[in-house]
Simulated assay, not measured.
Amino acid sequence: MDLLQLRYFRMVAHAENVSRVAEELRVAQPSLSRTITRLEAELGVPLFDRQGRRLRLNRFGAAFLERVERALDELDGARRELADLAGPDQGSVAIGAENLIVVQHVVADFVQRYPGVRVQLFSGTAAQVAARLSAGEIDLGVVSKPLDIPGLAERKLLDEEVLLAVSLNHPLAHRDRVAVAELAEESFITTSADYWQRTLLDRVFCRAGLSPNIACEGDEPAAIRHLIATGLGIGLLPAMSRDYPGPPVSWLRIDDIHCRRTLHLVWRQDAYLPVAAQRFREMAAERFARDRPGDP
């Protein structure tokens, strides 16, 4: 067996979907399937239970995955540690976030200070960021939803109020604050339940004994403000959004002291953290401490 087989196996084992992994890797699905089949033949046992096109990791696969994870983590850690020893300013750092806008200023500062370091960015849900961390595909994650996963360390970057954004011609646009009960008939623009915005919206309404009316739900957090500005609906946005360029909207506070979000930087405790990632972690903490948004 070779390293490529093991890396492919790990990805398929986590996704339990050959088509999805093949698309992500940009390889032909039959080729990926043959790679897994050859690995199983070499090991002498099936690693997956197959039901039509669906795969499910079986007990052999689960046991093998545990060892593969350990072996690949050690090899990746050794490679990155050697890169640090050869020249800490020539390494790399990979970061995942639910919305890359939240790290744009830190990335800009980092690239300016360490131009020789290769920076990779990935966006996705908190669960996808966690999966990439677990697989060793990224060094750091920036998330707003708690990651209840053993072995992760975290540092709080920001605790901020979440505001209600409405279009400039909305009847509430002249208000400074609003009660949740007043929003019962409003149409909301939000994300899918995989993102923190939707989770928070549901919780805020649940505390008031209500359910939000969803007019638009998607997987593009950055598009919410633009859609709100068109008058399609209203939505929740973090206070820091006021500092980002975008179409003008009116900002209101919601009468719910729990309408807040906490931004965390997370990393694996059991994996080697490259010098570049350590430096990015410190720069992120410093930048967010310096740029904490004030109340409206």
Results as ranks from 00 to 15, higher is better:
His226Trp: 10
Cys206Ile: 06
His226Ser: 12
Ile214Gly: 12
Ile189Cys: 11
Ile254Gly: 02
His226Thr: 10
Ala208His: 10
Leu147Asn: 12
Val142Arg: 04
Ala13Asp: 01
Arg132Lys: 11
Pro248Asp: 06
Ile149His: 07
Ala276Gln: 02
Ser92Gly: 13
Gln269Asp: 11
Ala63Arg: 14
Leu273Glu: 01
Leu265Trp: 01
Ala277His: 01
Arg268Thr: 10
Arg261Met: 15
Glu74Ala: 09
Pro221Lys: 11
Val45Pro: 15
Pro150Ile: 11
Asp270Val: 08
Leu65Cys: 03
Ala239Ser: 15
Val178Trp: 15
His174Thr: 07
Phe110Tyr: 03
Val111Asn: 08
Arg242Tyr: 12
Asp255Val: 09
Gly231Asp: 11
Pro88Ser: 01
Ala289Met: 01
Arg113Glu: 15
Ala193Glu: 12
Glu23Asn: 05
Glu182Gly: 05
Ala179His: 15
Arg268Met: 06
Arg10Met: 05
Val107Asn: 03
Val107Gly: 06
Ala208Met: 10
Arg260Val: 13
Asn213Gly: 11
Trp196Gln: 11
Asp270Glu: 09
Ala193Arg: 09
Asp202Pro: 02
Asp76Trp: 02
Phe288Trp: 09
Val275Leu: 07
Tyr114Met: 14
Gly91Ile: 01
Gly124Pro: 01
Pro238Ile: 14
Leu75Asn: 01
Leu163Gln: 12
Lys145Gln: 13
Leu82Lys: 14
Ala271Lys: 09
Ala208Tyr: 11
Leu4Lys: 03
Glu66Gln: 08
Gly91Thr: 04
Val166Pro: 13
Arg56Cys: 12
Leu163Cys: 08
Asp73Lys: 02
Ala41Ser: 15
Ile149Phe: 02
Leu4Glu: 03
Arg67Phe: 01
Ile234Phe: 15
Glu286Ser: 05
Val68Gly: 00
Ile254Leu: 12
Glu185Trp: 11
Gln120Lys: 04
Asp255Gln: 15
Ser167Asn: 09
Gly209Cys: 02
Gln197Gly: 04
Ala284Asn: 03
Ala97Glu: 02
Val204Cys: 04
Leu6Ala: 01
Ser250Leu: 04
Val143Lys: 05
Val162Gln: 01
Arg53Asp: 13
Pro293Glu: 06
Leu82Thr: 07
Ile138Asp: 06
Arg260Tyr: 13
Tyr244Gln: 09
Gly124Phe: 05
Glu154Gly: 10
Val129Tyr: 04
Phe280Lys: 04
Arg198Glu: 12
Cys216Leu: 15
Ile257Cys: 08
Pro296Leu: 12
Ala239His: 13
Arg281Pro: 00
Arg70Gln: 01
His105Cys: 05
Ala223Ile: 06
Tyr195Ala: 05
Ile36Tyr: 10
Gln269Val: 08
Glu81Ser: 09
Leu3His: 00
Ala181Gly: 11
Arg38Pro: 15
Asn17Leu: 05
